[in-house]
Design a protein around this nucleic acid. Structure first.
Length: 286
DNA sequence: GTTGAGCGTT
């Protein structure tokens, strides 16, 4: 049941509008809503149509309640990762709307005004190195950022619904489509997400600091450690350095960033499942 | 039934 597009703009005050370009002529508001709703509260989806024929004009407007979530949607859906930007076989383009009602102050793709943040839904970000250590590392962080977004945690009436979903079929290398939904204690699930990302970030920086191959460390150590149980990053430091050095003396496996990303995801899914099954306790996280 | 740069519903 579509509640968009028929009744006009519902609550346009203090909302943030995105222009979605390059949608197919058959794409409707209900097709767009689930995709954009992943990144925040969508208050309206409007597809301009020809007055006479009713045909779509091939673009849409999506309104978010919160600016930071709109910004996130732009970064993810206008990005270079096919699984999250393809709708009806077309790669959509997403940007802040520049004209029309409540046009936001845009500057280089970002809104330049006070940004109301949504409380209680802030996500940990993968830590970025202060300086650009390597192109490889930055690419990895980009992947991590998207994986993070693909894993949604919703707080509903004191409990958390955890949903992890990812699709990489479009990339043509792997097929991963998993979904986990469960009701557990909200605190515990939030910890899982934060912890996994922290570990990955820490391991990546260790690798650079130790002068060993990042891919080797991540592949042979980082993911495995996560799979074995969630440890505190600090506890990993000496071990990471030792195993990183070890890995250097072994034949290096060819591991693509994508493979690493997939493994991280799988590790996350497993960890989440372990959490749900009660294998891991919250105290193990800290 | 097709098309493809762009900015909006009463």
């Amino acid at each position: 049941m579509s509640h968009f597009g028929r009744t006009g703009p519902p609550d346009i005050k203090d909302t943030y509008s995105l222009l979605v370009l390059n949608i197919s002529f058959r794409t409707n508001a209900d097709d767009l809503f689930p995709l954009f709703d992943r990144y925040g509260k969508v208050v309206d989806v409007f597809i301009p149509r020809d007055r006479r024929t009713g045909e779509s004009r091939g673009f849409a407007f999506v309104r978010y309640k919160y600016a930071d979530e709109a910004q996130m949607a732009v970064e993810r859906l206008d990005g270079k990762f096919p699984p999250w930007r393809e709708v009806d076989g077309r790669n959509i383009m997403v940007q802040f709307a520049k004209y029309g009602p409540n046009a936001e102050r845009i500057h280089k793709g970002k809104i330049m005004e006070a940004i109301p943040s949504r409380r209680g839904r802030s996500r940990s970000r993968s830590p970025r190195p202060r300086q650009v250590v390597s192109e490889q590392l930055n690419t990895l962080y980009d992947y991590l950022a998207d994986i993070e977004t693909a894993i949604e945690i919703e707080n509903i009436e004191g409990e958390a619904a955890v949903e992890a979903e990812i699709g990489m079929r479009e990339i043509g290398i792997v097929t991963v489509r998993e979904r986990i939904a469960a009701e557990v204690e909200a605190e515990a699930e939030a910890e899982v997400l934060v912890e996994v990302l922290t570990i990955i970030g820490a391991v990546a920086e260790i690798a650079v600091g130790a002068g060993v191959l990042l891919m080797t460390v991540l592949h042979q150590l980082g993911v495995v450690l996560i799979l074995q149980g969630v440890h505190h990053p600090v506890a990993l430091l000496p071990q990471a350095l030792r195993k990183g050095a070890m890995a250097e003396s072994h034949p290096l496996q060819k591991v693509s960033l994508l493979q690493v990303a997939v493994q991280i995801l799988e590790a996350h899914l497993l960890t989440a499942q372990m959490r749900i099954d009660g294998c891991l306790g919250v105290e193990e996280l800290v």
